[in-house]
């Protein structure tokens, strides 16, 4: 009856305030909720140096993917989360 959830890789673009601890909040969320981080890069945004962009690849089923995005959205340092 239960469908086996399909696990896939996906890439997130996360814009965060360029503040001490912002990256830690994002990665801490992943470890505490048991999500995977496969790759991660972070750099200040050229158009707005008060912001940083995190590009992260992760993996999980659809429910996990949705949860990750919603949980990231709740962080006050996170300004935007997009699946790319």
């Amino acid at each position: 009856m239960d469908k086996v959830p399909e696990v896939s890789n996906f890439t997130l673009s996360i814009i965060v305030a360029n503040r001490a601890g912002a990256l830690s909040r994002v990665t801490g969320l992943f470890s505490r909720r048991g999500y995977n981080i496969d790759t991660l890069t972070v750099s200040p945004m050229v158009e707005d140096p008060t912001m940083s962009r995190i590009i992260m690849t992760s993996s999980g089923d659809e429910a996990t993917r949705k949860q990750i995005i919603k949980q990231l959205d709740k962080l006050f340092d996170v300004k935007e989360v997009k699946l790319i």
């Binding site: 001490a20 601890g21 801490g28 969320l29 505490r32 962080l75 006050f76 340092d77």
Partner: peptide, 14 residues
Amino acid sequence: IVGITMPVTKHNYM
């Protein structure tokens, strides 16, 4: 304490 309480606060500040 900011690091310690990160997972148990809505937000925190130094």
